[in-house]
Design a protein around this nucleic acid. Structure first.
Length: 877
RNA sequence: GCCCGAGUGGCGGAACGGUAGACGCAGCGGAUUCAAAAUCCGUCGCCGCAAGGCAUGAGAGUUCGAAUCUCUCCUCGGGCACCA
């Protein structure tokens, strides 16, 4: 025990844990279980600091819970399907499978030195046929249960890559990879019926008490419940079959302000009218625009008057024109609306453009009707005066007006109140190779036929090529050709694969029985589910977590999960990012050039922080002017680096720190300590070289302290044993409460303070040893390797990782006397030390007798005195 | 536009309505050293010689007492957004 050398102790203890099988999860009915899970990574090939932070947090929880006596499940796997593997194959050759498994091996090799307490025997990759075969089995069960269906849907189609693109893959109306203008094309796709669960997924959010409020709110907004009126207009001059036009509105109270009706270009009525070349041309024009967010936002409102008219339900003599308008969405409500330009900005813009009337329905209380320059849209909770009302009192809130209008419609039989959701069914078809094949067969005789379960997995063929665009499965010479599972005649496999979000929607359940021949095993799922603590990035707040919540319900319905697991994640924690400042210079053309942190030098010059390129010695300067001149000189030579405030680590900005470099230099414990130390876990943490060094120095100090205590003579007597015992108890208490509350930064702060206390303590050898053994136990969730070394050195029994968590003696947590600050009129003026249970009346007497108090009172009479036991005394004069 | 969240020293951040700034970084002073690095000790919100005063984005309010609760405003961050 001489020098702190992580490169020696870290591999040593990792082997010791492995040999002891310390982290193998076992179903143990005699113990309570604890399932901690970090969101599994995409195998890009390199781990980054964000991974280190995420997995370290999970590891702290796993190790802490294990030492508290829980049977812990802490698995790891790979979200291994997806586009990057295919892109790599297209750009650099090679095969997605080889690329992916190679990356998994590389990343695993980078993760193991971190010393995470992971049960690697449960490792899985979603691209393992063992995994996706079970996913296919569940797909078939869900198909049978009516949770999956096919329908035609409008998608973003990249005509060059010949694939469907997600909205976020469409940039400026062009495919992100091919750069080709994206078309809106109608394709038949597979969907999960997630919208059947809209109401439940929304209301169950209330039960997720240990989820961040923010995530619950984001999901609630995404699900987007609204209450409104649905009714039908009677049409005049419409084609056969369109005698009625169903519309939906959340503002039925504005019905008297309707000046037109509008339908989506994708509405069946619009299709029926496409025989008219002018209509067809208009609809085509609407389609041309992409469906990306920006596209829609900037698109101008355009419309086409169909000549069809509808009768106003409250006044059959009044007829409104029916327009086709590009801003009406087919998949919300009924795909048709009535326009009330006075109280809806979109309708106002549209009516203004096409010269339609804008009659107000209500005005602000106490005002008169006047021409509008923009739509008047007050909060629904605000009281307004209805000038064209038809239900409820003249003056009422919007909410009351809506309720009265729905009641009026229902009473008079022209409409009914309905609830709608923004959440749409989940389209999972992807025209890609590297994904889970959808296990169905298209038979000319039988139609769409599910594959037989005994034929699963439907495995991806290896012999595919990526030298041309489109789906390799589609052009494979034989893969598609199979006999129909129903009638046996030649048929074709479905060549679409599943959205990779499906893969990640149930991996948490698979971890409970990762090698089983069924998707899950009832006993294992019953024992391990739910995930007690799930940890990951806020970027998955909506899609991944919502899909998983749906999938767990679907798995329950098909018998793959118990009822208790329909909300699979009991507690969710969303950790912040690891950031780093950016170092930038400009080239002679004025373009930014970025530099890696290791390529710059940070100098403290006078009281300024100067960052330079390369290895520049600091100046020998005496005056501020000298320093300025020196900096100016650097600037002229192009050596002065501009520092851009902290941002998410990104390769393009070169503000990345490779965890492997840090481990090589300082060891895993330092990296783990640092990512936990500086900021609350939910916030971003800025990686700084000085902070990492400080972490390393601290661990070295702890090492040295351990060494020193090890050399103390066994009979050494100290004068303040009790003080150290109390400090030890306080440290146990603080670290325990901090870890329980996910405040790892506070746990670290308490450990710093405790280390300093031990270093300065004047205590007998056994008390010192007990203190440092306790320190080792308290450090072990964060820095497990150095903790083991200290534990072993100080005579701890067995592995520190297996030792029970220390408990603080409550008697040592309370002090016999307390220091009470004394305030006079709310300002701190003095303090006194009193026995902890001294009665208030006596404390008052002592306080008033205090000479500082007398001085500050200056003879003024005391009006009131407040004694908060053990806290504070406030004298009001 | 709508809905959230956050503003505390030079920096990251602590603080059940009760001593604001724990802990760390940076800085400053000292010891050690031939010297430097490393290490150790001390100091460190601002103004002031001091007594003391001023300080938690700004302004009001509640309270004996407010970083913390309430209201208004400002700034930053995030989510959603032709969703009828």
């Amino acid at each position: 025990m001489s020098r702190y050398d992580p490169s020696v102790i870290e591999p040593k203890w990792q082997s010791a844990w492995e040999e002891a099988g310390a982290f193998t999860a076992r179903r143990d009915p005699s113990k309570p279980k604890y399932y901690v899970l970090e969101m599994f990574p995409y195998p890009s090939g390199r781990i980054h600091m964000g991974h280190v932070r995420n997995y370290t947090m999970g590891d702290v929880v796993a190790r802490y819970k294990a030492s508290c006596g829980f049977s812990v499940l802490h698995p790891m796997g790979w979200d291994a399907f997806g586009m990057p593997a295919e892109n790599a194959a297209m750009e650099r050759g090679g095969h997605p499978k080889d690329w992916t498994y190679g990356n998994i091996a590389d990343m695993k090799a980078q993760m193991r030195p971190l010393g995470l307490s992971i049960d690697w025997s449960r490792e899985l990759a979603t691209c393992d046929p063992e995994y996706y075969g079970q996913q296919q089995a569940m797909f078939l069960d869900m198909l049978e249960a009516g949770l999956v269906y096919r329908k035609a849907a409008v998608v973003n189609w990249d005509p060059v890559d010949m694939t469907v693109l997600a909205n976020e893959q469409v940039i400026d109306g062009k495919g992100w990879r091919s750069g080709a203008p994206v078309e809106r094309r109608e394709l038949t796709q597979w969907f999960f019926r997630i919208s059947d669960y809209s109401e439940e997924l929304l209301s169950a959010l209330d039960g997720l008490a240990n989820w961040p409020e923010k995530v619950r709110l984001m999901q609630a907004n995404w699900i987007g419940k609204s209450r409104g009126l649905q009714f039908a207009f009677e049409t005049v001059g419409a084609p056969e079959g369109f005698e009625r036009l169903e519309v939906y509105t959340t503002r039925p109270d504005t019905l008297m302000g309707a000046s037109f009706a509008a339908i989506s270009p994708d509405h069946p009525l619009a299709k029926a009218l496409e025989g008219d070349p002018k209509v067809a041309a208009f609809v085509a024009e609407c389609r041309r625009g992409g469906t990306s967010a920006e596209e829609i936002e900037t698109a101008e409102k355009i419309g086409y008057d169909t000549g069809i008219r509808v009768k106003h339900p409250l006044d059959p003599d009044r007829e409104l024109p029916v327009w086709i308008a590009n801003f009406i969405l087919m998949d919300y409500g009924t795909g048709a609306i009535f326009g009330c330009p006075a109280h809806d900005q979109r309708d106002f813009d549209f009516a203004s453009k096409y010269g339609l009337p804008i009659p107000p329905v209500f005005v602000a209380e106490g005002t008169e009707e006047a021409p509008l320059a923009e739509a008047y849209v007050p909060m629904k909770s605000e009281r307004v005066r209805y000038v064209r009302g038809f239900a409820g009192p003249e003056v009422q809130t919007g909410d009351e007006g809506v309720a009265a209008a729905i009641a009026h419609a229902e009473a008079n039989g022209y409409g009914k109140g309905v609830t709608k959701f923004r959440l749409r069914d989940w389209g999972i078809s992807r025209q890609r190779y590297w994904g889970c094949p959808i296990p169905v067969v298209h038979c000319p005789a039988c139609g769409v036929v599910p594959e037989k379960k005994q034929n699963l997995p439907v495995e991806l063929p290896y012999d595919v090529s990526f030298d041309q665009p489109g789906n390799p499965l589609d052009r494979h010479p034989t893969w598609r050709d199979v006999p129909c599972p129903a009638c046996g005649t030649p048929a074709k496999r479905e060549t679409d694969t599943m959205d990779t979000f499906v893969d990640s929607s149930w991996y948490y359940a698979r971890f409970t029985a990762p090698r089983a021949a069924t998707p899950t095993v009832a006993e294992d799922a019953a024992y391990w589910m739910n995930v007690d603590q799930y940890i990951g990035g806020i970027e998955h707040a909506i899609l991944h977590l919502l899909y998983s919540r749906f999938f767990a319900r679907a798995m329950h319905k098909t018998g793959h999960l118990p009822q208790k697991a329909i909300e699979p994640f009991d507690a969710l924690f969303t950790q912040g990012m690891v950031t780093h400042e950016i170092y930038r210079t400009t080239d002679d053309k004025g373009r930014p050039v970025y530099h890696l942190p290791e390529d710059v030098t940070v100098l403290a010059v006078a009281d300024r922080r100067v960052v330079v390129l390369g290895d520049v010695p600091p100046p020998e300067a005496d005056t501020i002017a000298d320093v300025d001149a020196w900096i100016q000189g650097l600037s002229d030579e192009g050596l002065l680096v501009e520092v851009v405030p902290s941002a998410k680590m990104s390769k393009s900005k070169k503000n990345v720190v490779d965890p492997m470099n840090i481990i090589a230099r300082f060891g895993a414990d330092t990296a783990r300590w640092f990512v936990l130390s500086d900021s609350p876990p939910e916030r971003d943490v800025e990686w700084t070289a000085s902070g990492a060094e400080a972490a390393y120095k601290h661990l070295s100090r702890v090492w040295g302290l351990c060494d020193r205590i090890g050399q103390m003579p066994a009979d050494h007597k100290g004068a303040a044993d009790d003080d150290l015992r109390r400090a030890t108890a306080r440290a146990v208490d603080e670290v325990t409460r901090s870890i329980d509350g996910f405040a790892f930064n506070k746990a670290i702060a308490a450990l710093y303070a405790f280390t300093n206390t031990i270093a300065r303590a004047d205590a007998s050898t056994p008390v010192m040893k007990e203190a440092i053994r306790t320190l080792a136990r308290l450090m072990s969730p964060m820095t497990p390797h150095i903790a083991e070394s200290i534990w072993a050195h100080q005579g701890g029994e067995g592995l520190c990782a297996k030792a029970p968590w220390p408990k603080a003696d409550p008697a040592l947590l309370v002090d016999d006397s307390v220091t009470l600050p004394i305030q006079i009129n709310g300002k701190r003026r003095a303090e006194i030390s009193v026995p902890k249970d001294m009665p208030g009346a006596e404390v008052e007497k002592l306080a008033l007798a205090n000479e500082d108090v007398i001085k500050f009172l200056a003879g003024n009479p005391v009006k009131k005195i407040i004694v908060v036991p053990g806290r504070i005394i406030n004298v009001v004069a």
